[in-house]
Amino acid sequence: MDAHNTWYILPLVVVISLVYSASRYELTSRIFSRARRIFLTIMIFLGILFVVLNTLSFRL
C-alpha cells in the first residue's frame, strides 16, 4: 500500500475507537478517555507491524 493510502487508516481507527467505546460506557468522559486509549493501542500495534513488515521487505 502506498504512503498516500496509508493515511486512510487514521479516520478508520478514530471511528472504530469512538464507536466501540461508546457502546461500552455511557459517561461521556469515560467514552472519550477509553477511545483515546484504544486509538493509541491500535496505532502503536499497527506502527510496530508496519516497521516489522517494512524491515522484512527491505530491498525486496
Partner: peptide, 30 residues
C-alpha cells in the same frame, strides 16, 4: 479501501443497535 470503510461502518452500527437495545455493555462508566 472504500469497500472496507462501508463494511466496517455496517459492523460498527451493529454495536450501536445493541447499545440502543441493551444499554452500554460494561456499565454506566462511573
Amino acid at each position: 479501501l472504500a469497500q472496507v470503510f462501508t463494511w466496517i461502518a455496517g459492523l460498527l452500527n451493529l454495536l450501536a443497535i445493541w447499545d440502543a437495545l441493551e444499554g452500554p455493555a460494561y456499565g454506566y462508566g462511573d
